[in-house]
């Protein structure tokens, strides 16, 4: 029942073809002394409908700025952002957001956290809790519906954060290093789970990560960014996870290492200069 609206939206987006279009995005800030700090030099990027794209770049290169622009939390200095064919001028809940910190509200129980977005939309308590409980049950978290986040493990909390994002039923999900605070095993499990979920629901996903391996294992495409002021250096067509059916298999494939070496070379990270 909750899928109906998603399908309606995705029918529209099929005609459009691109989920996100960044056209000549430039962004600069002013520091205390009124000097211009150029963060984004020029980004033009088309993100296709239902694809999984990763943005990989050196730290501090302005990836998160790019994210905030897509989410509508920040305005570009120049250029245009189109999400699902529409110009984005402010934040309207058009994209779901998942970050390194799970950002669960400590004063809300799990079910209240999951239904947060629906509450903002103005749904009644009954409606939103039904939806939230459906999702929680689907991902094995129903028993924790009325617990507070502080009692859950990091992996579970991040899973709740993902469910909260999904419950809003956004067409596009932005993932800003969502796994970096987790231990390696939990990370692999969650990667797999998220791939499965995104496939089930037919979502477009943009992943920001430092982890080249993670990007290769999950993505259809990878955009490698330059140092700040940033622009797109190169785009790789990967698609191992889709072709082989899972991120684990992608990691075991012989092409994985080739991609890794090439992307590593592109990043041109030199110890001491970058950090």
């Amino acid at each position: 029942m909750m899928l109906n609206s998603a399908q309606a939206v995705s029918d529209v987006t099929k005609e459009v073809g691109n989920a996100i279009e960044l056209q000549g995005i430039k962004k600069h800030f002013y520091d205390k002394d009124e000097n211009i700090i150029q963060v984004i030099k020029d980004i033009t990027l088309e993100i296709k409908n239902k694809e999984f794209i990763s943005i990989v770049g050196p730290s501090g290169c302005g990836k998160s700025t790019m994210f905030n622009i897509i989410a509508g939390l920040m305005q570009p200095t120049e250029g245009k952002v189109k999400v699902l064919g529409e110009d984005i001028v402010s934040s309207t809940g058009h994209v779901g957001y998942m970050m390194q910190k799970d950002l669960l509200f400590p004063w809300r129980t799990i079910i209240e956290n999951v239904s947060l977005g629906l509450e903002v939309k103005g749904m009644t308590k009954k409606e939103r809790e039904d939806i939230a409980l459906d999702y929680l049950a689907k991902y094995g978290l129903a028993d924790f519906a009325h617990a507070y986040p502080s009692t859950l493990s990091g992996g579970m909390r991040q899973r709740v954060a993902l469910i909260r994002t999904l419950a809003m039923d956004p067409e596009i999900i932005l993932l800003d290093e969502p796994f970096s605070a987790l231990d390696y095993q939990t990370r692999l499990v969650l990667e797999e789970e998220i791939l499965g979920i995104l496939r089930d629901f037919g979502k477009t996903a943009v992943l920001i990560t430092h982890d080249i391996g993670e990007a290769i294992a999950m993505s259809d495409r990878i955009a490698v960014m330059t140092q700040r002021p940033t622009c797109v250096k190169k785009i790789y067509d990967v698609g191992l996870a889709v072709e082989l059916g899972s991120g684990m298999k992608a990691r075991a494939d012989h092409r994985y290492n080739d991609f890794f070496e090439n992307i590593w070379a592109d990043l041109d990270i030199q110890i001491g200069r970058d950090s």
Binding site: N68, A71, G72, L73, S91, T92, G93, H94, V95, G96, Y97, M99, K101, L103, F105, W107, R108, L116, G117, E119, V120, K121, M168
Partner: peptide, 28 residues
């Protein structure tokens, strides 16, 4: 946590909603 405020904004919430759902409980 300004991230919580940003999250609320990304969900499309108004300033009043942010006040009620983040500012008050977080200051309690």
């Amino acid at each position: 946590d300004s991230n919580l405020v940003n999250l609320m904004k990304s969900l499309g919430s108004s300033k009043g909603q942010i006040f009620k759902k983040v500012v008050i409980p977080s200051s309690l």
